[in-house]
Design a protein around this nucleic acid. Structure first.
Lengths: 216, 216
DNA sequence: CGGCCCTCTGAGCAGCCGCTTAGCCAGCCG
DNA sequence: CGGCTGGCTAAGCGGCTGCTCAGAGGGCCG
């Protein structure tokens, strides 16, 4: 019930570990679940504390406010997502390979960590003004990765894109929205979804179709 | 400040008119704005009443609860969006024409009415259980429209789609997510966005590319 | 072993929440 | 003209909110 989907049993959660203290990490995971289920504003500090098996006051030993919990989740989540996207975007010989790898990894991350991703992508506006601005600069980096790939592929003639900025935004948009609707009980696995979305992104970029029977 | 984007000055708002009473309509528009800005749970009935220029108690003469306001907005918004999508999906000779028209209209609606659409698409979970279930049946109808077009186009050989259900969901997802990021002060107009997204959807469907210089 | 610090709890504060109630007032009907 | 009706408001109810604080308990250090 409290285990993050896709995480191996017994493996320490990296988000929880990032808190640097076991109780602080438990509170972070409890907050992710609660925020994802009900939204930031509808979640009470008592609810978070109860999910972590603690008293409401314990929360304020490790975090100054409820908003700081959201901020920590947001920073860590964005950093992870951008790293996943950036690493994948360097795997591949052709630009098309790299775009496919990037989109596949990014969409897959949103499916696998849909609980976390939902908080990261849809509860941003509940952040304080300074924290919000800080997160926005992180987000721009993610968009730039896809745009650079489209730039490179279009310049080299591999892609046919009329409006690079808008197309890059559409591809990002497609991946991000996965967090809204993805259901782990549904028929598609995160891997399948990643493959499918990589193909869709290549088509959106106007890349030449791979021959039939290509790929696994 | 309180006028819906894209609405002509002085023209009676159809959502407001749907309330059947002037004050009730003003409250509905005020609620849309407040819910879109802060989210349902972070919005207080006092805030809604103040935006409509009334006392908090006035709200309860026209609506039983705060949730009923959200429900009215949701039903009306879904009905409009589905009608826009359905009407457009019947305009065109080829299936590709109709898919382009449907996606263009649907994406454009989400851009033009992004305030309303944001509430409709992202505050669903705040609905009561029965109301939520009712809205879900409406939503399925929307998805079916795109899926039927892909079905028809694939059967006729106009489209090349490996996974029709997932591709239909991706196209819907792309349009819906417009409500999350669209900024009327940005460089793209709703019309431009609709045209762009129609082209992207055709590519996702594997339709043959139109010859260069095609269209306006 | 004594003292200290760090973590955690029970109790609770001030303030805001959704919603209700009693009553005011303008407009319509006979 | 008197009385009734429906839209509206001022005041306020119980309950829940984020957050605080005094103190308990247990492990580490000298």
């Amino acid at each position: 019930m409290s285990a993050q989907a896709g995480q191996k049993q017994g493996a320490p959660d990296e988000l929880a570990a990032s808190a640097g203290h076991e109780t602080a990490g438990r509170l972070l995971l409890a907050a992710v679940e609660a925020f994802a289920e009900r939204g930031f504003h509808a979640t009470t500090t008592r609810d978070i504390a109860q999910r972590a098996g603690m008293s409401p006051a314990a929360l304020y030993i490790h975090y100054r406010t409820k908003e700081e919990l959201l901020y920590q989740i947001s920073v860590f989540g964005h950093q992870r997502a951008i790293r996943v996207l950036g690493d994948a975007s360097r795997h591949g010989v052709t630009v098309a390979d790299r775009l496919a790898a990037a989109v596949s990894a990014f969409a897959r991350w949103h499916a696998e960590h849909h609980t976390r991703a939902r908080v990261v992508q849809y509860e941003l506006t509940a952040l304080g003004e300074e924290h919000y601005a800080e997160i926005l600069t992180l987000r721009r980096r993610a968009g730039d990765i896809i745009r650079d790939l489209l730039d490179e592929g279009t310049a080299g003639g591999e892609f046919q894109v009329a409006d690079i900025r808008s197309t890059a935004r559409a591809i990002m948009s497609l991946c991000i929205d996965v967090a809204r609707w993805f259901d782990p009980a549904g028929s598609d696995s995160p891997e399948q979804l990643g493959r499918l979305y990589a193909g869709l992104a290549l088509r959106m970029a106007g890349a030449a179709e791979p021959p039939p029977g290509f790929g696994a």
